Computed example of a mutant assay.
Amino acid sequence: MTKLWKIDGNALHPLAAERFDAEDRLERWLETDISILDPSLMVIGRQVVTPHQGRVDLLAINIEGSVTVIELKRDRTPRDIVAQILDYASWVSTLDTPGVHALADDYLRPRGDGFTEAFRRKFGTPPPEPLNVTHSMVIVASALDTASQRIVEYLARVHDVGINTAFFTIFGDGKGQFLSADWLMDQEEVVERTERRARAPWSGLWYVNVDDGVSRGWSDMRRLGFISAGRGRIYSAPLEKLSAGDRIYAYQKGAGYVGFGVVIEAALMARNVVIGGRPLLEHQLDQPALGHDPDDPEMAEYIVRVDWRNALPLAEAKRFPGAFANQNVVCRLRDAATLEFLAKEFGSPES
């Protein structure tokens, strides 16, 4: 059960969970900003009519072209919602690439761009071919009974079904309301188990986003040997997947692949990182904003030190049409064509 406290000086005051009666509002919030559920998704449909005499609350897609069914529990019994989302998923599994394009265009064109343009704007790459090789399901609820949780976990852990539950809770302090979110299981692990059956096995290599910009600079990362992420644990926590000895390829959105290296130190807050005998934040940095929020464990920049075996300036980034790219900070790299390309451009990762 999620709990929340308000910090008041040196004191902590627990916030009371309030009755969640805002499912319709939550659906609109998710449609407007799906990142509060999963930043790797883009919404491609709302209240989508199915041949099964039902409407899917939300449909979304990720950069790999996998479709996610998102269904709010509303006033349905817990077991009914599990059965309902499985029924919707059985329909989604029949959608081919043209079907996904048509459905997404119907939803997106009245809002501006068509599907291809919206996908490119969101992910920085055109939609892959084919789409919907795998699909997943997310039940959105304020609570789920223990029996239904067991069913969801059984389907996911034993049978590799891509199903999970996201819990949203409203808290109040008498002056305002706060929304919190949590997962029943690690969502990336659920998706990974699902995709394992349909995609190539994992290479053992990791993909990381450089995200050169207002908070960090690739020139600093390349020169001093690190990668970083921050301004929220949703961005920095994925760095904790990396351990000393892990091999990574670095990617900059809009440019391409810029480096291959080996992790030499797991993630630490920037203020605690020492490079060349000096604290990182005392080095002359091209992007001094790396030191933002140094004492805030939620917002601070986190650093993973890397021994770059081959690192290029952004102007020399390597890419090819169809190369794997992903907006996640860290993810497993398994695309065979991209791996072959990277080995050629950066040298064998085994050497």
Rank of each mutant, 00 (worst) to 15 (best):
R74E: 04
V304P: 05
P294H: 10
T125E: 05
L4K: 00
A181S: 15
V67L: 07
V69F: 10
F260S: 13
A104Q: 06
S348C: 09
G176T: 14
A289K: 13
H13S: 00
R25F: 08
R76H: 15
V191D: 01
D293K: 11
Y107R: 04
D296W: 09
P126E: 10
A343G: 07
L86F: 02
H101Q: 11
R233H: 01
P110I: 13
R28I: 05
R199Q: 04
A289R: 14
I139A: 01
I63D: 08
T116A: 15
N164L: 06
R309F: 11
G112Q: 07
A315Y: 03
E350T: 03
Q149G: 05
Q84N: 09
C331E: 06
G261E: 15
R309A: 08
A143G: 06
A198M: 05
T50M: 08
W29E: 07
G54L: 10
S180K: 13
G322L: 14
V152R: 00
F260A: 12
V262M: 11
A16E: 09
R109V: 13
A200E: 06
V274E: 15
H283L: 15
S180I: 06
L30R: 07
F324R: 11
L224T: 03
L224V: 00
R79C: 04
A118C: 07
R46I: 01
V82S: 00
D145G: 08
A311E: 07
E117P: 02
A343T: 11
L205G: 01
M221C: 15
A11E: 07
G172T: 12
Q53V: 12
R19F: 07
L339V: 03
V304T: 11
L144F: 09
K241W: 13
A118L: 09
G99M: 07
S93C: 11
D295E: 07
V152K: 02
V330Q: 07
A147M: 12
I34A: 02
M221D: 01
I85L: 02
L285Q: 05
L108E: 06
E129G: 03
A11N: 03
C331K: 14
A118M: 10
N209G: 14
A311G: 05
